[in-house]
Nucleic acid binder design. Sequence first.
DNA 1: TCGAATTTGTGCGTATGTATC
DNA 2: GGATACATACGCACAAATTCG
Lengths: 248, 248
Amino acid sequence: MAQPAYLRIADNLRQQIVDGRLAPGDRVPSRHQLAREHGVSDRVAVEAVRLLVSEGYVEARSGSGTYVRQRPQVKRLTRSWYRQARGRASSPFRADMEAQGRTGTWRSSSETTTAPPAIADRLHLTMGDPVMRTRYIFLADEQPVMLSTSWEPLELTRGTPVMLPEEGPYAGAGVVARMRAIEQTVTLASEVVTARTILADEADTLGEPMGSIIMVIQRTYSGDRPLETADIVVPVDRYELAYVIPVD
Amino acid sequence: MAQPAYLRIADNLRQQIVDGRLAPGDRVPSRHQLAREHGVSDRVAVEAVRLLVSEGYVEARSGSGTYVRQRPQVKRLTRSWYRQARGRASSPFRADMEAQGRTGTWRSSSETTTAPPAIADRLHLTMGDPVMRTRYIFLADEQPVMLSTSWEPLELTRGTPVMLPEEGPYAGAGVVARMRAIEQTVTLASEVVTARTILADEADTLGEPMGSIIMVIQRTYSGDRPLETADIVVPVDRYELAYVIPVD
DNA sequence: TCGAATTTGTGCGTATGTATC
DNA sequence: GGATACATACGCACAAATTCG
């Protein structure tokens, strides 16, 4: 037997998916059907389908069936700053979405808390210092596509109109504009990029399957000192990150 | 049974690994032992260990046993350009390694070929145009840590001393210096970052386990036109990418 | 050098649990 | 509530790699 049975079945299905005989959203034949069609046991069909799940071709919904995933087109997120003259767009995210002909919006909630060690380090604070933490869910055409958690030192913003990032006169204006409003000039954004598998709650809010890969951007805005830092969660099947670096 | 048995066993082992009761290099109990200890079947222990392997906690050596992996410390790759005055270091990679107190070297091999569609697009060529393709294996202290495949348009370099990137007077000098030698000025580096799971041959040369995650940097050096493009493969358990972006 | 024991990898037939429709 | 589908578990078998006497 040159090919194991479960690989043969997987190849068969993969072929049907890539050449369109099985379209996104279609239900893949159930294990019983697959097993009978190929004259093998249930267990072999399980392994075949498991392989396709791990490859991201299909998504298994318990009790319902296994469905062909539609791979969203990968869009580009421009991470450089002197990019577009931002025009009407009041935020980097909205500008990126406008460039793609989509409407970018977000939901957020803020609360005061204390800085965990990693965040204290990034903001040049001491662990336990008070910070404003804001969680964002970014939506493109109403669909959640990106997550972010932002931290700002309360010693900077307490008592000012920009203390709550998404309320008051500067709501939705972006970090740079808000900081300028309290006489802090942002001169630098540092972005540290890593990647990992998605967490359960992230998968849940983003509608991504478990096991999918996300990139994490640790972004820090600085002037004379770090002013804000954020962890931005970006699913790789939705976005790629574009950086432009001047040479010399 | 709230938790499936294989998850319970995996959690148990993972806990022992993170709190040090199982140290890097230690052998994890064999699946027979695990099955007996937890009162489950052989097959369940297999699934538990398979999960830990896919998470990168352990490494299974067929015929020998399953061992706790030591996670290399994550190092930072500085992707900005006006970073360090590069000093003696003749290349970005070597400079990064020197900054970490390690010696950076590489192996490479070049060959002429024709541009596949994606590469032609990045170099503003037509599919099938002749290009010089060079594959690199980057070593830190003799250990393979990074891969790269570079493409250059042969219409630019053919007949010049820099046609072969790693031979002749400009061997190892880096793309910017080599292009300057043929009167081409690099003014911009564009880097598009994505991530995916590692491929079998990549895992093999990098000594990474299958299933681990890598970032891919599609880097293009441009002047008046695209001069060189490369796919750089970076394992996330070894490196994070740092970009610095001027604001305003 | 050889072979036996151990260990992981893989394949598969079957049974039961549980979510969905 | 019943039928269907996926998830998990058990038991068995054998191949390949490794270890060690």
